[in-house]
């Protein structure tokens, strides 16, 4: 579930408010997005991909997590790590172009005896 909107990283673009498929975020009076309905989060990680400043963190758990430390997560590359893998963001190229599914499928066919 979504756990962190980093106030230091967030630039109040409110892209997360816009793209969340389950309407978890609200724009607050200060302009910063807030996690208004965490219960509605489906842990799909899409907000992280659309955040231009890697200010969001979705915990992999399907229920609220214990307190998380933003500095620590940033330190181990988890803030924005998924966006980097998907190849979104300035100076990156789409990871879809490096999709190795064809190699997997080949092996899978051997394994399944197709």
């Amino acid at each position: 579930m979504i756990e962190i909107v980093s106030e230091t990283r967030c630039i109040s673009c409110n892209q997360c408010v816009k793209v969340c498929p389950t309407n978890v975020f609200d724009r607050s009076e200060s302009g910063l997005p807030i996690i208004a309905r965490q219960d509605d989060c489906q842990t799909c990680f899409m907000c992280e991909l659309y955040c231009p400043t890697d200010a969001l963190f979705v915990s992999p758990h399907d229920r609220p997590a214990a307190t998380l430390d933003e500095e620590e997560l940033a330190g181990i590359g988890l803030l924005g790590g998924y966006r980097e893998q998907v190849g979104w963001g300035k100076g990156r190229s789409p990871g879809a172009a490096r999709d190795a599914t064809y190699l997997m499928f080949k092996e899978m066919q051997k394994k399944a005896g197709h």
């Binding site: 991909l49 998907v86 990871g95 490096r98 599914t101 064809y102």
Partner: peptide, 22 residues
């Protein structure tokens, strides 16, 4: 413009899609 990967023979591989990009 979907960035399909190239297989080992250099052909576009069109049997898979990554959701966010698609």
């Amino acid at each position: 413009g979907y960035p399909f990967p190239l297989d080992e023979s250099g052909n576009r591989y069109l049997r898979s899609l990554q959701g966010p990009e698609y």
